[in-house]
Amino acid sequence: MASMTIRNLDDALKQRMRMRAASHGRSMEDEARDILRAALSTAGQRPTNLARAIRARIEPLGGVELKLPARDPIRDFLARDYS
């Protein structure tokens, strides 16, 4: 198995990692492995369509109801007298 070292890690981030690991009852190293495993296991499943990606993000929240403003009829520019 490979190993890696992460340098210049922000102190606040390290503290959050320590707290998260403790809440899951494991070491920081185990927690980091789990975070990397979870993050990288879904990376290849990104939708290529932006609309689908947005819909997938919003649907679990119940969707969004948008109020559309009233629209005026399309103006007929060709019927105008420009003289």
Rank of each mutant, 00 (worst) to 15 (best):
S41L: 08
R57K: 13
P73E: 03
Y82M: 04
K14G: 10
K14E: 12
I35N: 04
E65H: 08
F77C: 07
S23F: 04
S23W: 09
R33A: 04
L68F: 12
A53L: 04
R18G: 06
I35R: 06
I54M: 12
E59K: 09
I35G: 04
S3P: 01
D76V: 07
S83H: 10
L66C: 07
K14Q: 14
P47A: 01
R75F: 11
S41I: 00
R37V: 00
R71A: 15
Q15K: 14
G62F: 01
D10W: 12
R71I: 14
L9M: 14
R18L: 10
A12L: 10
P60Q: 01
E65K: 13
N8C: 04
A51V: 11
R16F: 08
I54C: 03
R71K: 11
A79Q: 09
L78E: 14
A56H: 06
M28G: 14
L9R: 14
Q45R: 03
K67I: 11
Q45G: 10
M1K: 06
T42W: 03
P69F: 01
E29Q: 05
R57T: 09
T48E: 05
A21T: 03
R20E: 06
G25C: 02
D34A: 13
R16W: 07
E29V: 02
R7N: 15
A53D: 02
Q15H: 13
L66E: 09
R26W: 05
T48M: 08
T5E: 07
